[in-house]
Computed example of a mutant assay.
Amino acid sequence: MCKQQDQADFQRVTDVVQRYFTGLHHGDSQLLSSIFHPDAYLKAPQLRRGLAEWLSLVEQRAKPIDNGDSFDYQILSIDVIGQQAMVKVLCPLLGRTYIDFLGLLYEDQQWRIVNKMYADIE
């Protein structure tokens, strides 16, 4: 792949992550659903959730924007290799701080999150 394509993929992955942040902040399960692959799993130590279960929880919880929370999400690192990407992000959310590792694949002409691992840090 040429450098120009690498840059384009890097930007597309960044765009997906920005939509992820917006979806979290607004509690927008439809937006989040559009950037996750349907068979994605969310994983933390001793915890596994399918996408539908997690999206249901997002819909039920308080929305950070309604709480007046700042939009302080950050991309900490992005690695794009071919049609795979790994992104590390910081998500201050509802009084807690999470580090998420998002695995993305480029399939069917789009980048989508296929895996999310996360930890609540103190």
Score class of each variant (00 low, 15 high):
75 I>C: 05
117 M>Q: 13
103 G>C: 14
74 Q>F: 03
121 I>K: 09
111 W>I: 06
27 G>V: 04
27 G>K: 00
38 P>N: 10
32 L>I: 09
120 D>T: 13
96 R>H: 13
13 V>T: 08
121 I>V: 15
90 L>M: 14
40 A>D: 01
111 W>R: 12
51 L>N: 06
54 W>M: 07
14 T>H: 09
111 W>F: 05
15 D>T: 12
62 A>F: 05
117 M>G: 04
58 V>P: 01
76 L>W: 08
34 S>R: 00
46 Q>H: 07
26 H>P: 01
103 G>Y: 08
21 F>I: 03
13 V>K: 06
52 A>Y: 02
88 K>P: 01
76 L>S: 10
73 Y>G: 06
7 Q>N: 14
65 I>R: 07
103 G>L: 11
84 Q>L: 15
56 S>L: 04
48 R>N: 02
36 F>V: 02
100 D>L: 13
2 C>R: 14
91 C>L: 08
116 K>P: 00
25 H>T: 01
46 Q>I: 00
3 K>M: 10
94 L>S: 08
75 I>Y: 01
80 V>I: 15
55 L>H: 06
86 M>H: 11
21 F>P: 06
43 K>A: 12
104 L>P: 09
85 A>P: 08
5 Q>Y: 06
66 D>P: 00
55 L>Q: 05
92 P>L: 12
4 Q>W: 01
24 L>T: 01
67 N>G: 08
12 R>T: 09
14 T>R: 11
6 D>F: 15
40 A>P: 02
87 V>G: 05
